[in-house]
Every structure is written in structure tokens, then in C-alpha cells.
């Protein structure tokens, strides 16, 4: 049996207009994982997903789904893979039920066998009552659900979702999260892209960050959040300083003569910092939290890639 649900080696993509979308990325996603692929607009997330789903041709490199190379075992790879594309890709004039039954048919599942599955999945996604509606009459959030229903109809072991919650309201998003968590718990490996870092934090165990066609980070959510155990505090000073004081265990940075920024490890008491500052006769007018968490880190990593 294959070791990974998805393995990508040196994947490159140059579009016909000479845009280099992927510059040789490597990615491994473990079986049963819940993986977030993050990156700014135009980073290459959808290109990567398109190649995995054979909607986009690759320029070079290898992709395998549960050990099935898409160059040699494409059909096996396809039967194990479900993809929810970023853009709506069903015929707007067909009925919800027909769309899902047809997608099952394309996977070779006859209608009689597909029907109970379709009913089950449409019910779970609260689409059953709308099964006879024309797809174009669905609201944006329900269109997303229909995309998910389509991608799951052949019971894939790897589900890839390209920004499934973009433009979805908070309630629906939380519903979708618990749905995805559940199917992940039942054994489906999930990869998703999102611009909501909170979403990645809520759902995913591992995380890859892609920027300008290269992977700039590939780590576990735990480790990533671990680096966030350092909290930033901003002190507004009473008197200007010429340079940042040096205090053991508390890295300090002078942003401007009246603003001092401290990185405080979560397991250290901020009281200690105060008493050290008082010792040095530095008076603090006010203090606030540096807005950071994941977003800050994300921007840092992406910015580091600028150079």
C-alpha cells in the first residue's frame, strides 16, 4: 500500500502565455491527514489542484494519488480522488438531482445504485429539499454544497477542496467545517485551500504555504502555532530611547524612540519584564498586544519569499 495519500515531486507548470505558475513543488500528504494549502492570490494553489485532477496539464514532474501515478495509473488515481473546484463547474440549467446523478454516471455508477447515495449525500448537505430546483436558482452557499456533493458521490479517499468556504456565511461555514471534520474522521484524507487562516487552524493538522509557485513552508499546525507561543507586546514610552535595552530572556526591539516591542514567550511572566524595565528606569505610558497570530506569520513567510 502507498505511504501517502498524495505525493507531488518537482511539479512544474508553465501556461501557454508563458506564465510560470509552479516552479517545481514537492508535497507529501499523509493518509488520513487534514491538510491546508495556503498562499496568496496567484500563488499556484488552483494550478496544483487542477493538475492533480487532470483538468490542467503539467509541464514536468510527478503526481501520485495513493501511489497511483497520474501518468501511468490515471484511472485508479481518478477513482480515488474527488475535487471541489474553486469555480462553479456544473451546468446551470440542470436540476440539482440530475447533476449529481449524472456525475455518478460519469464515474460508471448506474442510476439505480447511485440514487440511495445521492439521496444520502444531498440530505447531509441540506440539499435534498432543493433537489428539483434548477442549479442556477441556488444561492452561492448552496452552489458550493452542490459542488461538494458532486465531488463525494463516488466516495473518494482523497478530497481536495479549492476555497470551499469563499463567500459562505459564518453559520454555513461552521456547518461545512463539522461536515468535513466528520468525513475526515471516517477516513477520508482532506486537502483544502483557504484564505481564512482561522479555518485552517480549526480544521487542519498539517499545512503547506505556497507562494509564487514554490512551497515556502511545510509543517504541522502544532509546530506553526508553537512558534506563535511568542506573544508580541507594544509599549508606548514616556521618554524617548536611543537604543533598545537588553534584558535576558526578553528580546526587545525599538520601533521608534517612543515605541518598544517585546517578544514574550507564553510560559514567561510579563511581570518579570516590567520589573526589569522599571530597574532600567524606563517608564511605560501604555501597553497593547501586537496583532499577530497566524496572519502575521503567514505574511512574514510570504514576504521572506520576496527576496
Amino acid at each position: 500500500m502507498a505511504e501517502y495519500a498524495l505525493e507531488i515531486n518537482n511539479l512544474q507548470k508553465v501556461y501557454d502565455n508563458n506564465v510560470v505558475a509552479l516552479k517545481g513543488i514537492n508535497l507529501k500528504v499523509q493518509k488520513g491527514d487534514f491538510y491546508a494549502l495556503l498562499g496568496p492570490n496567484g500563488a499556484g494553489k488552483s494550478s496544483t489542484i487542477g493538475i492533480i485532477g487532470s483538468l490542467v496539464t503539467k509541464s514536468a514532474g510527478k503526481v501520485s494519488v495513493f501511489g497511483n501515478d497520474i501518468d501511468t495509473d490515471l484511472n485508479k488515481a481518478k477513482s480515488m480522488l474527488g475535487v471541489v473546484s474553486q469555480e462553479i463547474n456544473f451546468s446551470q440549467f440542470e436540476k440539482v438531482l440530475d447533476i449529481v446523478v449524472t456525475q455518478a454516471g460519469f464515474y460508471g455508477i448506474p442510476k439505480s445504485i447511485a440514487m440511495p447515495k445521492v439521496e444520502n449525500i444531498l440530505k447531509r448537505l441540506s440539499l435534498w429539499d432543493k433537489r428539483n430546483d434548477q442549479a442556477r436558482t441556488l444561492s452561492g452557499g448552496y452552489k458550493r454544497r452542490l459542488m461538494i456533493a458532486k465531488a463525494l458521490i463516488h466516495e473518494p479517499q482523497l478530497l481536495i477542496l479549492d476555497e470551499p468556504t469563499a463567500g459562505v456565511d459564518i453559520e454555513l461555514r461552521r456547518e461545512m467545517w463539522s461536515f468535513l471534520k466528520e468525513i475526515n474522521k471516517n477516513g477520508t484524507t482532506i486537502i483544502l485551500t483557504t484564505h481564512y487562516l482561522e479555518e485552517a487552524e480549526q480544521l487542519c493538522r498539517n499545512i503547506g504555504i505556497i507562494d509564487k509557485g514554490t512551497i515556502v513552508a511545510n509543517t504541522s499546525m502544532k509546530d506553526l502555532l508553537g512558534t506563535l507561543n511568542v506573544q508580541g507586546f507594544v509599549f508606548d514610552l514616556d521618554q524617548p530611547l536611543e537604543e533598545a535595552p537588553v534584558i535576558e530572556g526578553f528580546p526587545l526591539k525599538l520601533e521608534d524612540p517612543l515605541t518598544l516591542v517585546a517578544a514574550v514567550n507564553k510560559d514567561r511572566s510579563i511581570n518579570a519584564l516590567f520589573s526589569e524595565l522599571t530597574k532600567l528606569n524606563i517608564k511605560i505610558k501604555s501597553m497593547r498586544n501586537e496583532a499577530n497570530r497566524l496572519e502575521e506569520l503567514f505574511i512574514e513567510m510570504v514576504n521572506a519569499n520576496e527576496n
Partner: peptide
Amino acid sequence: FQKSIEELLISPM
């Protein structure tokens, strides 16, 4: 145009 060709391309047809 509607991208529903993806439904065919993603399947093993």
C-alpha cells in the same frame, strides 16, 4: 464555457 467539462475530465471516462 460553463466549465462543466470538468465533470467529464475528472472522471475516469
